[in-house]
Simulated assay, not measured.
Amino acid sequence: MKGVLLVNLGSPESPTPKDVKPYLDEFLMDERVIDVPKVLRNIIVRGIILQSRPKKSAKAYSKIWWDEGSPLIVISERFKDKVQKKTKMPVALGMRYGKMSIKKGFEELRSKGVDEVLLVPLYPHYAMSSYETVVVKAMEDREKYFPDMKITTLPPFYKNVNYLKVLSKSIAEGLAGFDYDHVLFSYHGIPERHIRKSDPTKYHCKIDGSCCSINSIAHHTCYRHQCYFTTEAVRNILGLSEDQVSTSFQSRLAGDPWLKPYTDYEFERFPKMGKTKLAVITPAFVSDCLETLEEIAMEGKEEFLEAGGKSYKHIACLNDRDDWVQVMSQWIEDWEVHNMLPA
């Protein structure tokens, strides 16, 4: 029997330092998030970051927390429920980090007789610290706890035509009625070394844009290329000019260089260029979360206005939009009936 496991990032149980700390520990101790030797990772995470970050992060979470709970969890559950109504197959939800684990998602499906699973990492783009870590964790859990379960993984869908149409429509609706002079596509940042590590050729990726126009197998796992592809595809669908749109990367850690340009630097730079009416979209996420609701919608707005901006709008993620649900449901049906995955 076939079933579907949707997997998103995860969340602390509550916006308190007590619950944020173990969540951050699991997240930051992931070798695909902070990819240094475990001894050094222990020192960085448990000896330095976790000494102060939980309190700061808990404050940030408390600013965006809903009565129903974590926005990411609530939105993901709403999305799962809507998808479930459109398919006869069991659909479960798991999180890469936190108590709503991937293992629990597999257990739920197995209890319903499922022995063949479509694993759906809810990330449009490939990155070690998002898509890859979900797939690796799922395979580890399958090998350890569910050896007889067959798993098929949905590929990154950043260039799927139907996904791009829905994303573009959501942005167009967000822009309607808003007097803007620039649209910023802000993607979650990753260290530059992750791009090189993910390059199967070990020589293609230059991280300067020159390699993105050269067709290569490296593009299948190049987060930077995929982000710029998404921006350009949406720009063309919406008929926006090149100078109206740009790409940036947010949420970096101190230390090694991360993908540039940095979103917070762009917030400071735009008003000086005369771009004072800004709309921001965060397409690395399909569900609104801390990084979109607090970092971009709240902190980003404050930074932009303080730098001289006049108006600012954060455009919501796809969340549980009916057209997004329909696209996902169609992918699931294509897999169920024809064993086809989106291209």
Rank of each mutant, 00 (worst) to 15 (best):
M89Q: 15
M89C: 13
M89R: 15
M89N: 15
P90R: 11
P90G: 12
P90M: 11
V91K: 08
V91W: 01
A92E: 02
L93T: 04
L93K: 08
G94N: 10
M95V: 04
M95H: 09
M95N: 13
M95Q: 07
M95C: 13
R96V: 00
Y97I: 04
G98C: 03
K99D: 08
K99A: 11
I102M: 06
I102T: 05
K103Y: 03
K104W: 03
K104N: 11
G105N: 05
G105Q: 03
F106K: 04
F106L: 03
F106H: 08
F106Q: 05
E107P: 01
E107Y: 01
E108F: 03
E108C: 00
R110E: 12
R110D: 06
S111K: 14
S111F: 02
S111L: 07
K112G: 09
K112T: 00
V114L: 08
D115A: 07
L118D: 06
L119N: 08
V120W: 10
P121I: 13
L122W: 08
L122P: 05
Y123C: 04
Y123I: 05
P124S: 13
P124G: 05
H125Y: 08
Y126I: 02
Y126S: 05
Y126L: 06
A127H: 00
A127C: 00
A127E: 00
S129Y: 02
S129Q: 07
S130H: 08
S130A: 08
Y131D: 07
E132M: 05
T133K: 06
T133Y: 06
V134E: 10
V135A: 09
V136M: 14
V136A: 14
K137D: 13
K137E: 14
A138G: 04
A138T: 09
E140T: 09
D141G: 10
R142T: 07
R142Q: 11
E143Y: 02
E143V: 11
E143W: 07
K144S: 14
Y145M: 08
Y145E: 11
F146A: 04
F146Q: 07
F146R: 06
P147C: 10
D148Q: 15
D148P: 03
M149S: 05
M149L: 12
M149C: 01
M149I: 04
M149P: 03
M149W: 04
M149Q: 00
K150R: 12
K150G: 03
T152E: 06
T152F: 03
T152D: 01
T152V: 08
T152G: 00
T153D: 13
L154D: 15
L154P: 06
L154I: 14
L154S: 13
P155W: 08
F157I: 05
F157M: 12
F157T: 07
Y158T: 06
Y158H: 10
K159Y: 09
N160M: 07
V161P: 11
V161C: 14
N162M: 12
N162Q: 14
Y163P: 02
L164P: 02
